[in-house]
Nucleic acid binder design. Sequence first.
DNA 1: AGTAATTTGTACGTATGTATC
DNA 2: TGATACATACGTACAAATTAC
Lengths: 251, 251
Amino acid sequence: MPAQFQTVQPVRAYQRVVEQVEEAVLTGALKPGERLPSERELMAQFGVSRSTVREALRVLESGGMVRSRPGDPHGPLVLPYSPAGLEKSMSRLAHLDQLSLAELLQFRMMVEGGAYLLAARLRTDAQLAEMRGALDAMERAVDRGPTAFSEADLAFHDTVARMSGNMLIIICSQVVHGVVLDMIAGKLQKAPDPRAVMAETLDHHQQALAAVRAGNGQLAADLARAKLYEYYADHLSSEERTALKWLVDGR
Amino acid sequence: MPAQFQTVQPVRAYQRVVEQVEEAVLTGALKPGERLPSERELMAQFGVSRSTVREALRVLESGGMVRSRPGDPHGPLVLPYSPAGLEKSMSRLAHLDQLSLAELLQFRMMVEGGAYLLAARLRTDAQLAEMRGALDAMERAVDRGPTAFSEADLAFHDTVARMSGNMLIIICSQVVHGVVLDMIAGKLQKAPDPRAVMAETLDHHQQALAAVRAGNGQLAADLARAKLYEYYADHLSSEERTALKWLVDGR
DNA sequence: AGTAATTTGTACGTATGTATC
DNA sequence: TGATACATACGTACAAATTAC
């Protein structure tokens, strides 16, 4: 085996501190709710200066792994895992990478389709009741305007995503839905008849709920994709529309 | 409208610096390849101490947004987007047992299915040739062992993902594939007959390529899901197997 | 090629507000 | 309430690294 050397970049002191703490959390040596030593003690344990310790703590803090408060004698708190980091990464991707609305909708079709497919199998009475409740909330929101309706709609889809039992679907659903709303912001209010649009959406969601209740995930997924297409098709170029239709028909 | 106050937590100085730089990058005011002012200039512009500037830079650096080198008179470099952060978040999720292999495979079925569906429509001769090339590379890798074969397999799937023309699919495909490999690292070498497994995988990929060439994305997607199921079913509990099968059949 | 200037990496000290006991 | 320990933020200093002349 030939020597296959790789380029190395200098490892900063703060990075080694971060790595050690991350390792401890990942291996379970440090559990959520437990405390890190105080900054002064950390500088002794790691043999680095206060600045280095603080830079490491800031990185861990921004990553959602610990939280340190001024004056807290117990030291930085180890936080339970939160998907906030994942969400932020995905939002950045969506905003940065010249992601087109068509790409987002394609992805959302895949995610929502999968969510319905799983939700229709895993459904419990409590979850169906939650869907029903979300639907009722949407109905009540019709009179409070498109913004409130949009929020209620998002809650409905979040419920379905959670019913799938798949963390990745839950997170992607939240993120993608949010980004799509960002991209379309304002364009929906310009609809000639907002109430008609909302009524139609409501009707579609009722059909989807019925399909999930009946255990027909395939139908619910098909409905969701078709609805997404007709709802957003106006905002797409003809090429984008064609590509999106492939996913609707092709499943 | 009643006063609806919310709890607020103190915003650290470094956070405001981070936010402003992130905003500049997100809005395109600061493009990859450009430079941030030096630390000393940043402390003047933001009106904070050098420690604060450095803490902010460390956070941005750990997020993969900038890179600063000692002695560089041009200041920190703004980096292009990289999915490294996404991958790290997802890996963490997986390692902390918040994410099961079954969830990852469900997600991968959705992503790969969508990729094939789109690839079969958008296919160009050059892309089909690239798939063919990736397949040939896999064939050559059979003799170099499971690790080399696995790498070639990853390249094949990456090609399909890129053919979809959807950045989200490309990134998710890379990330999820990588995490799955991490989770079952080593378990595949223990197969009684590695060559048989590789041959079977090769055969399946050839079928998928034929389906894409024929423009039958539905068939390619079905093949991919079925293959994923039989390939990883052994590593799942019976409940997880059942849930995974729902996605295979349901589509 | 070598030197000087600038920048980052790290360390240390200090003042101030804060949370806990 | 007071005492103590803590985090926050600022400032200074010096070594190491890089670039530019």
